[in-house]
């Protein structure tokens, strides 16, 4: 399978995971390790940036795991930019998962504030990974201002409903010149596999793993599904037909037809 490259970093795993909602930090660390993920996102509101012994951060000192701080909780571009600056200073990473959702019910991202913040953060040297609605035009605009990828949602965050935005995701994937990471709403390994088969570059999963009865095994299941989906994409799926077709090719006969010069 091809390696994924975002900004200057190479990833052999195309599964990114979130760290919220777990029943304990120990369980979270085990699930992250089992997922094989090399990029894990952590909410700035949950961690104590000035505490080197922060429980969550301590549990994320795992080999091969890169931290991706996220701005979940901010309501506008100004707050997002400041939060990213705080994260860079405290955590020593210029990677930021940009989340601006002024709507606390569905946590749907604000496209206008996200674009504003992205532009500013890119100028300040951040590797910006924006969480957005599955809006193809917005994706192109974000690409234009220099985000490292786009992260459209499959369904509202935490909803586990799968790829409800399927048709728009197809357009985004088709048009994008930066990696496309399907971020929210993926509730089952089959959803993740579907996103990867469609050609998404990676997926980000949190709730579906954290809230499963057995988060560790669910993390493994997602790892396998993402690998399977990606492999299928690279192997190129056989076309779907409405009618049945014989599995033995008729080509020799068709060749014969050509000779008849109909």
């Amino acid at each position: 399978m091809k390696e994924l490259v975002i900004a200057d970093k190479k990833f052999s795993s195309r599964l990114f995971v979130g760290t919220g909602k777990f029943s304990s930090s120990e369980m979270m660390a085990k699930a992250v390790a089992a997922s094989g993920s090399e990029l894990v996102t952590v909410a700035l509101k949950r961690v104590e940036l000035d505490n080197p012994q922060d429980d969550m951060l301590e549990h994320l000192h795992l080999p091969g795991v890169n931290l991706l701080p996220n701005t979940s909780g901010v309501r506008n571009a100004k707050e997002a930019v400041f939060a990213a600056q705080m994260a860079r200073e405290a955590l020593g990473t210029n990677w930021i998962k940009l989340e601006v959702h002024p709507d606390p019910r569905y946590l749907l991202p604000d496209p206008i504030e996200t674009l504003k913040a992205a532009e500013e953060l890119v100028k300040e040297g951040f590797i910006v990974m924006p969480y957005i609605n599955a809006d193809p035009v917005l994706c192109k605009k974000l690409e234009d201002v220099g985000t490292a990828c786009v992260m459209p949602l499959g369904a509202p965050i935490g909803s586990n409903r799968g790829l409800k935005t399927r048709d728009l995701l197809r357009i985004i994937i088709e048009q994008s010149n930066v990696p496309v990471v399907v971020d929210a709403g993926i509730g089952a390994p089959s959803h993740a596999a579907e996103a990867m088969e469609m050609g998404a570059d990676a997926v980000l999963i949190n709730t579906a793993i954290a809230v499963a009865k057995d988060p560790v095994n669910m993390a493994v299941a997602f790892k396998m599904a993402v690998e399977a989906g990606r492999m299928a994409f690279e192997a190129q799926l056989a076309p779907q037909n409405l009618s049945a077709s014989a599995t033995s090719p008729l080509n020799p006969f068709l060749e014969g037809i050509k000779d008849l010069q109909l």
């Binding site: 029943s23 700035l44 509101k45 909780g73 939060a83 705080m86």
Partner: peptide, 14 residues
Amino acid sequence: FEPVWKDWSAFMQE
């Protein structure tokens, strides 16, 4: 359940 002491950062408020 995980008891959460901190679920907000004051610096996130404008």
